[in-house]
């Protein structure tokens, strides 16, 4: 999450995605973002709608034969509330049949993995948040970052005048916005990731998902956020 406003709207979205796809959603945040204070515009509560995907009480009354893990095109099985439906509901953490009983059947196993991994991911792929892209056309260097580094990426790109610096900021790293990034990065003269971790995780992810090898990475892992001078100095060293 790049800023306070986005922290608010993306958290709402995270809950809605979790509810719609019946999956855990991870919100990446950090202390720098959490401890930041700044003025923001009034939040638009119209954009913060709670979406529900539970079978209504009225529709539940008609259900006499329920399968918790019903195989569907979307990979999403309609979710019922126990005691609202006449049938019972079996939920299970091991591999299970459509009814929810434990199984070791290879055919069922394959279908359930396809349901969870392929079918749900196809839907999730339609909901990816587009990266923020700034000044990348013809740039000498494209900086790439995610999370609370947004501010320092933008300031660094603005501050360096003798070279054209663009940047790409990801508000979502998984599912990865591969389509949006591949073209931009393939055309780039030089790509540098700016990351608050020791392993250049974003550079690795970009290489795996787009095939583009990032030129270098500016890393900081002393438990403190980036400051502008540090980033500018490092960009100049890399350039």
């Amino acid at each position: 999450m790049k800023q306070i406003e986005e922290a608010f709207y993306l958290t709402v979205k995270a809950f809605n995605i979790a509810e719609k796809y019946q999956i855990p959603v991870l919100i990446l945040t950090d202390q720098h973002l959490a401890d930041s204070c700044r003025d923001i515009d009034r939040l638009d509560l119209e954009k913060a709608r709670v979406e529900r995907y539970i079978i209504s009480r009225q529709d539940s009354a008609k259900i006499k034969d329920y399968k918790r893990y019903l195989l569907t095109e979307s990979g999403i099985s309609p979710r019922a509330i126990p005691s609202w439906i006449e049938d019972v509901l079996y939920a299970d953490s091991d591999e299970h049949t459509e009814e929810g009983h434990i199984t070791e059947d290879a055919g069922v196993r394959t279908k359930m993995v396809q349901k969870r991994l392929y079918k749900k991911l196809a839907g999730l792929g339609q909901e990816i948040i587009k990266p923020s892209v700034f000044n990348t056309a013809g740039a000498d260097i494209i900086l790439v970052g995610f999370g609370s580094t947004y501010g320092v990426l933008k300031e660094a790109a603005d501050a360096i005048k003798d070279k054209k610096i663009g940047f790409i900021h990801l508000s979502q790293v998984w599912p990865f916005p591969e389509r949006a990034l591949t073209d931009l990065l393939r055309k780039a003269k030089k790509v540098i990731t700016v990351e608050n971790n020791a392993g250049a995780q974003l550079a690795g992810l970009i290489r795996r998902e787009t095939g583009v090898k990032v030129g270098s990475s500016i890393l900081k892992f002393d438990g403190r956020p980036f400051d502008l001078d540090f980033v500018i100095e490092r960009i100049k060293e890399e350039a």
Partner: peptide
């Protein structure tokens, strides 16, 4: 949860949550 006892809810017709 998990174990032989944890299989019991599958063997009764009631709502069941067999988790971790």
């Amino acid at each position: 949860g998990i174990g032989q006892a944890a299989k019991l809810p599958h063997y009764i017709k009631c709502n069941c949550f067999n988790g971790l």
